[in-house]
C-alpha cells in the first residue's frame, strides 16, 4: 500500500476511535444524569430520618415530604423504609433501616402518590398519601 493510502486509513481509524470514546463517555454521563437513582437514595434517607425524628418527639404529629414523588413506590415497615422505581426488583430498591422503640410500630404502602405524609398516632407511625390526610 502506498504511503498516502496508509495515512488516510490511519486518519479514519483515529476518527473512529475518537467517535467511540466520545460516544461511550456521553452515554455514561447521560445514564447518570437521566436516572432517578440519586433522588431515590435521597428520598429513602430523608424518610428514615423523618421517622427517627417523629419517634424522638412526644405526642402525635403529621409531616409531609416536600417533593413530588409520584414515580416511586414506598413500603414502610417496623424496621425499614423501601423506595422502589417502576421496574425495580428487590436488589435495586433503596432500603434504609431504623430501630423503633419496642412499643412502636410502622406501616404503610404507597404507589403513585404525589405527596407522601408520615403520621404518628400513639405508638403507630403510618405512611399515607397526603391527599387522604391533609386535603388541598
Amino acid at each position: 500500500m502506498n504511503k498516502k493510502a496508509n495515512t488516510i486509513l490511519m486518519i479514519i481509524f483515529e476518527l473512529l476511535i475518537v467517535i467511540a470514546v466520545v460516544f461511550s463517555t456521553s452515554k455514561v454521563a447521560y445514564g447518570y444524569a437521566s436516572s432517578d437513582k440519586v433522588l431515590k437514595i435521597n428520598v429513602a434517607e430523608d424518610l428514615a430520618m423523618m421517622t427517627n425524628t417523629l419517634i424522638g418527639t412526644h405526642g402525635d404529629s403529621k409531616v409531609e415530604y416536600p417533593l413530588d414523588v409520584e414515580q416511586f413506590t414506598f413500603i414502610l415497615s417496623k424496621g425499614s423504609i423501601t423506595v422502589l422505581s417502576a421496574g425495580d426488583i428487590a436488589q435495586t430498591a433503596e432500603v434504609r433501616l431504623f430501630y423503633l422503640p419496642k412499643k412502636y410500630s410502622a406501616t404503610g404502602t404507597i404507589e403513585n402518590a404525589k405527596r407522601v405524609c408520615l403520621i404518628k398516632q400513639g405508638y403507630l407511625i403510618e405512611l399515607k398519601n397526603c391527599q387522604e390526610v391533609i386535603p388541598n
Binding site: E45, M49, G56, T57, H58, P101
Partner: peptide, 24 residues
C-alpha cells in the same frame, strides 16, 4: 457526593428520642 448524608446529622435525629420520649 450528591447522596451523602453527614453521619452526625443522622445520629442527632436518632438521639432525639433518648431525652424526649418516656419510652426511652
Amino acid at each position: 457526593k450528591l447522596t451523602y448524608t453527614p453521619p452526625d446529622m443522622k445520629a442527632e435525629f436518632i438521639a432525639l428520642r433518648f431525652s424526649n420520649i418516656p419510652e426511652c
